[in-house]
Simulated scan of single mutants.
Amino acid sequence: MDRWLLPWLKDSFLRHKAPITDVMLSVCDHFEPFHHTDKAGAMRRMQEWHTRLPEILATGVDHDGQTPRHTFFYPVEQYDADVLQSLAELCTSSRNEVEIHLHHHNDTAENFCAAIELGKVNLRHHGLLGSSPDGQPVFGFIHGNWALDHSDPAGRGCGVRGELAMLKQSGCYADLTMPSAPHPTQAPIVNSLYYSQSTLAGCSHHRGTPVKVLAGGSPSLREKPDHLLLVQGPLMLDFTRRKWGLMPRVENSDLGPANPPTVRRFHQWRKADISVRGAENWCFIKLHTHGAPEKNHPSVIGEPRRRFHAELLQLAAQEGFRLHYVSSREMVNILHAAEDGHAAGDAGLWRDYLYAPPACLQKA
Rank of each mutant, 00 (worst) to 15 (best):
Cys113Glu: 15
Gly127Gln: 11
Asp152Arg: 04
Asn122Pro: 04
Ala115Val: 06
Ala154Arg: 12
Val160Phe: 05
Ser131Met: 06
Ala109His: 05
Glu110Tyr: 03
Asn122Asp: 09
Asn122Thr: 10
Gln136Leu: 15
Pro133Leu: 13
His143Gly: 03
Leu164Thr: 07
Phe141Val: 01
Ile100Phe: 06
Leu167Pro: 02
His143Gln: 15
Pro182Gly: 05
Gly159Ser: 11
Pro188Gln: 13
Phe112Leu: 08
Asn191Cys: 07
Ala147Ser: 15
Tyr173Met: 13
Trp146Cys: 13
Asp152Ile: 04
Ser151Asn: 11
Ser151Thr: 10
Leu164Arg: 03
Asp175His: 00
Asp134Lys: 13
Pro137Phe: 03
Ala114Thr: 14
His105Lys: 11
Pro188His: 12
Ala115Tyr: 11
Tyr173Asp: 03
Lys120Asn: 04
Gln169Asn: 13
Ala154Gln: 13
Val138Gln: 05
Val121Asn: 07
His105Arg: 13
Arg124Met: 13
Val121Arg: 15
Met166Ile: 05
Leu118Lys: 15
Pro182Val: 09
Ser151Asp: 09
Gly119Tyr: 00
Ala109Lys: 07
Val138Ala: 02
Val138Asn: 01
Pro153Tyr: 08
Gln136Ser: 13
Ser151Ala: 14
His103Ser: 00
Trp146Ser: 10
Thr177Asn: 06
Ile142Ser: 12
Ala174Thr: 00
Gln136Ile: 04
His103Asn: 02
Asn191Ala: 07
Tyr173Gln: 07
Ala187Lys: 06
Gly159Pro: 09
Asn145Val: 03
Pro188Ser: 14
Leu102Thr: 06
Thr108Ile: 02
Glu117Asn: 12
Gly157Ser: 05
Leu164Ile: 05
Val160Arg: 10
Leu128Thr: 11
Gln136Trp: 09
Pro184Asp: 13
Pro153Asp: 06
Ala174Phe: 00
Gln136Asn: 14
Gly171Val: 08
Trp146Tyr: 15
Asp175Met: 02
Ile100Asn: 03
His103Lys: 00
Ser180Met: 05
Phe139Tyr: 15
Ser131Thr: 12
Asn145Arg: 08
His125Leu: 10
Phe141Pro: 02
Gly155Arg: 12
Arg161His: 08
Leu148His: 07
Gly162Thr: 13
Asn106Asp: 14
Val138Cys: 11
Leu118Pro: 02
His103Arg: 01
Pro184Ser: 13
Asn111Phe: 07
Ser131Leu: 12
Ser180Asp: 03
Leu129Asp: 03
Lys168Trp: 04
Pro188Val: 08
Thr177Ala: 05
Ser132Pro: 10
Lys168Asp: 01
Ser192Lys: 00
Ser132Asp: 15
Gly135Val: 08
Ala174Asp: 00
Pro153Phe: 10
Leu164Met: 12
Ile142Cys: 09
Pro153Ser: 10
Val160Asp: 04
Ala147Glu: 08
Gly157Thr: 05
Asn191Arg: 08
Val121Phe: 06
Ser132Cys: 09
Thr185Trp: 01
Asp152Cys: 12
His104Cys: 13
His143Cys: 06
His125Glu: 12
Leu128Asp: 08
Asp175Ile: 01
